[in-house]
Design a protein around this nucleic acid. Sequence first.
DNA 1: GCTCTTATTTTCCGCTGTCAATAAAAGAAA
DNA 2: TTTCTTTTATTGACAGCGGAAAATAAGAGC
Lengths: 407, 407
Amino acid sequence: MRSTPRAETFPAQTPAAAQVFTTVLSHGPLTRLEAGRRAGLSPAAVTKAVRPLLAAGYLVEGGDPAGGTGPGEGPVEEARPALGRPAGLVRVNGERALFIGVKATGDELIAVLTDLCCRVRLARRTPLPDRAAGPALASIADLVHELLAHAAESGAPVAGLGIAVSGDVDRAEGAVRYSPFLDWRDVPLAGLAATACGLPVTVDNDVRALTVAERWFGAGAGLSDFAVVTVGAGIGCGLVVHGRVVAGAHGVAGEIGHLVVDPAGPPCHCGNRGCVEAIAGDAAIVARMREVTGHQVPDSAAAVALAHQDLPGAREVYARAGEAIGRGIATVANLLGPERVIISGEGLAAYDLFAEQIREAFTTAAFGSAARCDVRTRPLPFEEWARGAAAAAIQTFITENPARGKG
Amino acid sequence: MRSTPRAETFPAQTPAAAQVFTTVLSHGPLTRLEAGRRAGLSPAAVTKAVRPLLAAGYLVEGGDPAGGTGPGEGPVEEARPALGRPAGLVRVNGERALFIGVKATGDELIAVLTDLCCRVRLARRTPLPDRAAGPALASIADLVHELLAHAAESGAPVAGLGIAVSGDVDRAEGAVRYSPFLDWRDVPLAGLAATACGLPVTVDNDVRALTVAERWFGAGAGLSDFAVVTVGAGIGCGLVVHGRVVAGAHGVAGEIGHLVVDPAGPPCHCGNRGCVEAIAGDAAIVARMREVTGHQVPDSAAAVALAHQDLPGAREVYARAGEAIGRGIATVANLLGPERVIISGEGLAAYDLFAEQIREAFTTAAFGSAARCDVRTRPLPFEEWARGAAAAAIQTFITENPARGKG
DNA sequence: GCTCTTATTTTCCGCTGTCAATAAAAGAAA
DNA sequence: TTTCTTTTATTGACAGCGGAAAATAAGAGC
C-alpha cells in the first residue's frame, strides 16, 4: 500500500513510541505520567519515547488542561491537585503535517485537507464526470493538486493521501478488488494515485476508514470493542474488535446492510428480500414513500419533508426503517458485545423520525446484557467520509513509516 | 480466576516460549525451523525457547513426521528432501500433565480427564441431583476426586480443572454471573471449586470453552478468524477474531440463537418471535414435530426418527431449522468474514436432515465474498463440552502460569 | 574421506523498557 | 525567606529478549 514517494518520515523508532503517540493523539493533551498509565508503560519509557517526537516537532509541550477524561466529569473540581510539581502536558502538534483524504462515490468526489489531528482545514466537493478508473484517477489527481496548492501556503508538508472507496478493498495491497458503485474491478489504485499525486497513498474501504477515524479521533477513542453503523444510501458497519478494525478474511466484514430483517419484505438488489438496506436505505425509503403517499419524492430530503408534514403513512415508512436498523444493531451487539455502537451517516438527517424505533427495536432484540451496550449517534457532515480517508492516511503514516534504524 | 493451589508451574519464561509452545501444541510435531517460521521467530529464538521446555519435560524430541500441514497433501511425495541434515522434530509431551474438564448442565455433569494435548483419557457422566450451587459444587468435587484417583495411577500430575457452564460467565473473575439452566447468579465458582478440589480452576462459558478447544486442538487450529456454531438444545456461537476469543464487553457474545430469522415465527422464551433457537433448537423441533405429525415425540432422537420415516411434514420441520441455522451462519459470515465456520453440537445427529438447507440458506444470504467462507461440520461426542472445559484449563495453565523470573 | 546441503546451536550484540535514585517545580510551613 | 512536602519528570545503570552471523552437526553422494 505504501507507494513510491516519501517526503516525511515519522520517528517512531520503538513500539512504545508509537503507542505513546497514538495515546496522546486520541486523548488530547496528557501528562507523561498519565500517557504512560494509559499506554501501559513506565514513566521513564514515556520520557524516552517523547523526546525524539518533541525534537521532530510531532509533539509539543503545553496546551490547555483540556482533553478531559471523558464526559460526566466534575466541572470545576479536580482542576488540579495544587500540590507537588505541576504536570507538564504533552500534545500532538497538528500543524506538523497535513493529510489529504478523498472519498470517491459513483458520481462525485469529496476531498479534505486535514492536519495531523485530523482536523479539517479545507473541504472540496466536485462531480465525477466519468467513473472509469482512468478518468476518475485524473479527477482525483486534479483535486489533490488543488488541495496541495492550498497546503503549500501553510508551509506544513503533506505527508499522505488516503482514498476511500465503497466495496471490496484490499488495503494492504492498495487495490480496489470490486466497487459496484464505481464499477471498478482490481484497480491498483494506491500505486496509480501515488505516481499521479506524488504522495504516499493509502486506499481503504470507506466504512473501515470512517471506523479508523472514529477510533482515533471520535467517539470510539480508547475503546477496544465498538461498532460504527452508517445510515444513508447503504447501511454499513465498521467493527473494532480487540482494538483492531475487522477486515474479514475475504475482505468482507460488517455487512449489516444485507442482514435479512423480514423475509417477506421488499426485494433487495442482493437477491434476497427484506434486507436492512432494502427497508432503510435511502432508495428504499424514497420508493416506499412514493408508494405510500403518491407524491413525487425526488430524493430522501423530500421524503423527510413529507414525513415531517405528517402525511398519512409517511411516518410509518421511517418507523419501519428505524426498526430494521435497530434490529441490525442488536444483531451486532448480540454477536460481538461491543461497548458502544455509533450511528452515523447522511441518513441521520432523519434521525428524529426513527430514533425511537431504533432504540426500541434494539432493546427488544438485544439479548441479556448485550442491551447494556451504549448506542449513540454522531452527526456526520458531508466531508466526514473524506476525513475517514485522511484518518487512514494518518494511520499509515504513523504505524507504517519505518524510519527504523536499518529501514 | 487462578485460585489457591499450585502444584505444577509451566516454565514459559518468555513470550517467545509460550508462542513456540502453543504453535507446537496446535500443529503437531514440528521442526524447530518450521516452528520458528510459524511463530514468527528466528531459529535461534526457538532453540532457546525450546530448551527449558524440553528440560521440564513439556516438550520431547522425535515423533512421527506426522502433524501434516493440512489436508489435501501429497500422500507420499515430500516425505523428506533427503538432502542436508535431517530435521529433528519437537512435539508436546502429552503425558507430562493431566487436566480435568467438567461441563455442568441443569441435570447432569460430564467430566473428562485429558492429557496436555487435550486427548481424552477418561470420560464420566453423572446426573446432577440438585442444581443449587452448594450441592452442585459437592457433586462436581466428587466427580473430580474420582477422576483424580484414576489420574494418580498414571503418575502424571493433574495441573488444572476447567469448568464450563452455559450463560454469562466472567472467566477473569472465575465467577458465574448468571446461568439460566442452573439458575445460578453470581457464584464465585472458581474459588469454591479450587478449595473443594485442590486444583487451580478455570471457569468459562461453555461455548467459549469449546471454541478454545477448537482453536488449539481442532478445526480452528492456526486460524485467526473463525466461528464455532453449536446446534442442540440451544444454538450457540463462539467467535475468534484477530486470533482471540471474543468475550464481549458485557460478557455476552456470539448470541446467534436469538437472532430473529422470521418475525412471524414461533415465540421464543427470550420474548421475541422467530429466533433461530425458537425454530432450530431441540425443544422447538420436538414441539413442532409433535404439532405436525400428531405423534408423541418424547425427545429429539424421536423427532429425527420421524423425519427419517418420511412422515408428511416431518422433513419440513428440519428443512426450516436448517434454513434458520444457515441464515444465522450467513449473518456471522457477513459481519465478521471468518475464514471458516465449524458447525458442531448434539443437534448434528440430524445433520443429514438439514445439511442441504443450511448450505443453501448460507449461500443465499452470504453477501459477496463472505460466501467463500469455509463451512464445515465436526462431529461432537458427548464429552466434547467437557473437553472444552479442559482446553480452557490448559490455556490457563500455559498462558497464566507466571513462573517468571520475579513472579 | 570429502563435499554439499540443510538443521541446529553458539556467540555475541543491540535494543527496549524497568528500576531506583535524582532533579525539578510548585505550594505550605516555619 | 528558607525549608519541607508532595508530585512530576528525568537520568543512568541494568537485565532480558530476541536477532544476525558464524560455527557446528548430520546425513547423502561421490
